[in-house]
């Protein structure tokens, strides 16, 4: 294929192409100079979804083989956007990741609805497939047992992070990508850190939710795999809650 000659591009396109390449490269550089270790940690958290794909393959492959790659890509592209300084888009990806993860748990036991959802033949009127709020998930026996064991309301945490991420989706003021002084994306340490915290919290929620929603398959795995998943979750109370409520049979700290 012939190489692109930027000089042959129309004026506005050429300007955007050249500018975009500059800010993208310098934002990647500035971000990785300070946060390469953090970025590596986040990418390692994404890797855990390959294990989930393997865990769910036999029983839920029809749903999980379609949704898990999307969950992985939402997280991956979120890192990509953040390293480019596109924090608003990076956070939007996180909400998409969280929503797809919730759908996976729901659709894994609702195959007809999954088909309807894929075909787009039912108008839900903006409501999610699992109904109002997170009632559906809160009624799951595993979630109830976890909340009792950990004294933590998992879906309050989910609700809180979902609300934060929704501000980026709906362009509410604190989540704007522009300021009065600068329009093009630029690396900013505070925005990076805020996004990185959101990223970690979303992975905490998803891995806890999957461990509960797919508790039979999770418990059937060897200790090594169970520990790999628990290590992704930062909150000690969540880990303890999972170990106690499921219950998981290994000893010692994770």
């Amino acid at each position: 294929m012939a190489k692109l000659n930027p000089n042959s591009l129309p004026e506005l396109t050429k300007s955007m192409f050249l500018g975009q390449q500059k800010w993208s490269a310098s934002n990647w550089d500035d971000t990785l100079k300070k946060h390469s270790r953090d970025a590596e940690k986040l990418l390692n958290k994404i890797k855990i979804f390959d294990l989930w794909k393997e865990i769910l393959e036999i029983k839920y492959g029809g749903v999980s083989n379609e949704l898990i790659p999307e969950i992985i890509m939402d997280a991956y592209i979120s890192v990509h956007f953040a390293c480019m300084g596109l924090y608003k888009q990076a956070n939007v990806c996180l909400r998409a990741q969280l929503e797809t993860a919730l759908r996976l748990v729901h659709f894994s036991t609702h195959s007809i609805e999954f088909k309807w959802w894929k075909d787009g033949i039912v108008d839900q009127g903006g409501q999610e497939w699992w109904g109002k709020g997170y009632d559906y998930f809160c009624r799951l026996e595993e979630v109830k047992a976890f909340e009792k064991a950990s004294n933590q309301a998992l879906f309050n945490v989910v609700k809180k992070i979902y609300k934060i991420l929704s501000k980026y989706v709906h362009s509410e003021v604190p989540s704007f990508q522009t300021t009065q002084f600068r329009l093009s994306p630029k690396y900013k340490i505070d925005l990076y850190k805020k996004w990185s915290d959101n990223f970690k919290e979303v992975q905490d929620c998803i891995n806890t939710l999957f461990s509960l929603g797919f508790s039979v398959e999770f418990k059937a795995r060897n200790t090594n795999d169970q520990k790999k998943i628990l290590r992704i979750i930062r909150f000690e109370k969540f880990k303890k809650g999972l170990r106690k409520s499921l219950p998981l049979k290994f000893k010692g700290r994770i």
Binding site: L43, I46, K47, D50, K53, P69, I72, M73, Y76
Partner: peptide, 8 residues
């Protein structure tokens, strides 16, 4: 390749 990130 085993890993999705490597595949990407």
């Amino acid at each position: 390749t085993k890993d999705t990130l490597k595949r990407i």
